[in-house]
Design a protein around this nucleic acid. Structure first.
Lengths: 190, 190
DNA sequence: CACACAAACGGAATCCGACTCACCTTATGG
DNA sequence: CCATAAGGTGAGTCGGATTCCGTTTGTGTG
């Protein structure tokens, strides 16, 4: 029994307010100090820490929700496009998504680059989503085999972690290069 | 006249000791707090800060020295291999180089991902080294045009910033994918 | 409705790094 | 050998995350 009681009403409210405040803060870039997030949510830091082990845990949870949304898209893309096109679109989408703000970018990077168990679920979900696209591409001989979602994810995590001014343009170009690289080894590339 | 006097003897000694201690500390991974680095060098933190503006500046300087070495290699590689092979080798070499330790990995990431003028020189040098390889590849129609060293560098910086357990294998695979992606757009690929 | 009390909250205090500064020490060149 | 400016020291400040415990409040009894 992981969750003993169903959380008191005010507690649930605060938890949600904190997540909303954090998301907002990250989108706005604000360096998003814990105090600031708590203030936005109308609670004290102590409350924040009652709900989230550490600042990172909060970041992770916010991102996990975003990730859950993203992970639903491969299926939709595959229904509408050829596997390679779906893959390309998704890679670009990931970059766009990382662009929602630097706060998010850092969170993404953390999620991708850390071994902390906290991030395992999100990473697995994303990797699975990418696997779906890669497998479809491989099955259609449009994408090289021998690559799994986890690896591509790491590359993207690295790319999206970039913080320099023109990062987004560069990230998009690199995503394209990755995409071409992934197609390159396929049976009927060219 | 940027450097007024030639530095007092003890000052130069301490400066070098600090750089050596920092390099050592980074290689050993130790989280390398400033106090720790100063201690290893046998000086006080104040001395460290007399020589280096910030902790990052010290990191950057250590890395700049490493970078200078790396930047000499493209010319050598081009003398011995075809441009595309030289490029491939250099990309893999960069990953190996980042592998000297996590401390270094972080430094590399900082250098690649930051706009801070502190890192401009190192970044420019590396970008120039890569440009050299890319230009040779483009001239021989072995590499796509329209890509510059700065972009590739960012991708690698992101990749090498990964901190998870199996990062190196993944980084090598990704470097290969990037390489294939770079060749893909060339006139006579295939 | 009032009570009991565990759950939740607040926010001052603590901790942990990087970084600073007022004061001492010592090369150096005259 | 002295004057003096370059250099060194390390306790202290500062900015952030995190903790702790006294106070408040939702909730399920009677």
């Amino acid at each position: 029994m992981p969750s003993s009681r169903p959380l008191r009403a005010d507690a649930r409210r605060n938890r949600e307010a904190l997540l909303a405040a954090a998301r907002e803060a990250f989108l706005a870039d604000d360096d998003a100090h814990v105090e600031e997030i708590a203030r936005r949510a109308g609670v004290a830091v102590g409350t924040l820490y009652r709900h989230f082990e550490t600042r990172e845990a909060l970041v992770a949870e916010v991102y996990r929700q975003e990730v859950a949304e993203l992970c639903a898209t491969p299926a939709r893309l595959l229904a509408q496009h050829a596997p390679d096109e779906a893959l390309r679109t998704f890679l670009l989408l990931l970059v766009e998504h990382a662009a929602v703000g630097r706060g998010m970018g850092e969170a993404l990077e953390s999620i991708m680059a850390t071994d902390s168990p906290v991030f395992d679920d999100a990473r697995d979900e994303m990797a699975r989503a990418l696997d779906e696209l890669l497998a479809a591409g491989v099955a259609a001989d449009l994408v090289r085999s021998g690559i799994n979602g986890r690896i591509v994810l790491r590359a993207l995590g690295g790319i999206c972690g970039m913080r320099a001014k023109g990062w987004k343009d560069d990230a998009l170009r690199i995503a394209t290069i990755l995409y071409d690289g992934l197609r390159y080894g396929a049976a009927n590339h060219g």
